[in-house]
Computed example of a mutant assay.
Amino acid sequence: MYLERLNQFSLGPDLLFGVGAISHVPEIINREGFKKVMIICDEGIEKAQILEKVLEKIRKSNAQITVFSNVEANPTTDTVKTGMHLLKKFRPDLLIGLGGGSPIDVAKALGILATNGGRITDYEGIDRFSNQPLPLLAIPTTAGTGSEVTIFTVVTDPIKEYKLTVGGSMLAPKWAVIAPALTITLPPKLTAATGLDALVHAIESYTSTMSYALTETLALDAIRTISSNLRQAVFNGENLSARRKMLYGSLVAGIAFNNTRLGNVHAMSHPLSAKYHVPHGVANSVLLPHVMEFNLPAAPGKFLNIAKSIGEYIDPTQTLMANAYKAIEAVKQLSRDIHIPKDFSEYQIRESDILPMAEDAMKSGNIAVNPRKTNIEDVVSLYKKTMGRTSFETDSVLE
Rank of each mutant, 00 (worst) to 15 (best):
K108M: 03
G111E: 10
H280C: 10
E52H: 06
K189S: 10
L230C: 00
E27G: 07
G249H: 07
M321V: 14
K108N: 03
D105M: 12
E43Q: 11
A242N: 05
E329H: 15
K174H: 02
I58L: 14
D353L: 08
G125A: 05
F90I: 08
T194F: 08
T317D: 15
F392S: 03
L382C: 00
K342T: 07
A307P: 11
G33I: 11
V234L: 09
G263V: 03
L220S: 10
Y383H: 08
M38S: 00
L196P: 05
I310Q: 15
V234P: 04
T260S: 05
K160E: 08
G168D: 05
N229V: 10
S23H: 12
H270C: 01
V282L: 15
N284F: 13
A274Q: 07
N131G: 09
I255F: 06
L164V: 06
W175E: 00
H24T: 03
R5C: 00
L164E: 06
E399N: 14
D360G: 00
L296V: 15
M357E: 01
Q318T: 13
F152H: 14
L86W: 08
G263R: 02
K308H: 02
R31M: 07
Q64S: 15
W175S: 01
V155I: 13
L15E: 05
V149R: 00
D360M: 03
Q318M: 15
T390W: 00
Q49P: 04
A358I: 02
V106F: 15
Y347Q: 12
M357H: 01
I367L: 09
F257N: 08
G33W: 07
G20P: 02
V286E: 03
P316Q: 11
E56S: 12
E27V: 05
L164F: 05
L199Q: 14
D78M: 04
S269F: 06
I223K: 14
A358D: 02
P187E: 13
G388E: 05
S364N: 12
L110D: 07
L190I: 12
N74F: 12
E72F: 03
A202C: 04
T121F: 04
M246L: 10
I96V: 10
D105V: 13
P26E: 06
I96N: 06
V80F: 01
